[in-house]
Write a protein that binds this DNA or RNA. Structure first.
Length: 256
DNA sequence: ATGACTAACATAGTTAGA
């Protein structure tokens, strides 16, 4: 079973790229972030025609998350992270597919830091960690995946010293991610490739992709009931080089 | 230090992204 995550940066503007990638790589489950579309503007018919059913939580202009499945039933659990009913950003959607909890998340960027946006990021992270701990305690198969907007270590940044004061790499952010992983989750990419430079995002600026000036910010965290099934993982880096690409590339895992 | 690029919304230029 192949599960992928892809920050599409606009699901409608990205539709040709998304459909081409789905057709070429045929993942079974796909988590999308940054739909940048209101609920009624999600391209449901095109997704159905591509062979996928979907649940999604849209929002005008920004954010927005979706879960796609090819053949497997999607049982929606919730479409918001618990803990703050005032938070109206569409950044989390959760479903059960084939007995696994699939949490699709789009963690806030948090820049500029320090400031209210960074405070929001850390609060959101805290809520995520509380929710993750609750799921972990159930002792069931759980996958938390999406755009975490954090480079966990210096290995995950092309030039760490340039990013130390950025919301994606500040000590508080890295500590929040470490706290999450230390609950007992497995970072799938790092489990299989502990020492390799692997990026999932390249800025649109300054030919970042051409220079391979990237970041690893899209992650798969696996609960102990899933981790032993991890067979392969990777980044579809070539997609970032396509015409009209997102600034992120799709990331995927394959389970036994 | 700044600005380079892209999408959405709107239909010019702002906001947000990371």
């Amino acid at each position: 079973m192949k599960i992928a995550t892809y920050n599409v940066n606009g699901v409608n503007g990205r539709l040709p790229v998304l459909l081409r990638w789905l057709a070429e790589t045929q993942p079974d489950v796909v988590c999308l972030q940054e739909l940048k579309a209101p609920q009624e503007k999600f391209p449901e018919q095109a997704i159905l025609d591509a062979g996928y059913t979907a649940i999604w939580h849209g929002q005008k202009s920004w954010n927005g998350v979706a879960i796609l499945s090819r053949g497997f039933e999607i049982k929606e659990v919730c479409r918001a992270l618990p803990g703050d009913t005032e938070d109206l950003h569409s950044r989390y959607i959760e479903a059960i597919i084939e007995g696994m909890v699939i949490g699709c998340l789009y963690l806030p960027n948090g820049n500029p830091a320090p400031g209210p946006k960074f405070d929001y990021k850390l609060r959101w992270f805290q809520r995520l960690n509380e929710h993750a701990a609750m799921l972990y305690a159930k002792g069931i198969p759980v996958i938390l995946t999406g755009d975490y907007n954090v480079m966990p270590t210096e290995l995950d940044v092309y030039k760490p010293e340039r990013w130390v004061n950025d919301a994606l790499f500040r000590p508080e952010t890295r500590q929040a991610f470490k706290n999450l992983v230390d609950q007992g989750w497995t970072d799938a990419i790092r489990k299989l490739y502990p020492d390799q430079t692997i990026y999932t995002f390249w800025d649109y600026f300054r030919n970042a992709y051409g220079r391979d000036a990237g970041l690893r910010i899209d992650h798969f965290l696996l609960s102990p009931q899933v981790a032993p099934r991890l067979k392969a993982a990777g980044v579809d880096k070539q997609v970032r080089g396509w015409e009209k690409s997102s600034d992120h590339a799709p990331v995927w895992i394959e389970l036994k």
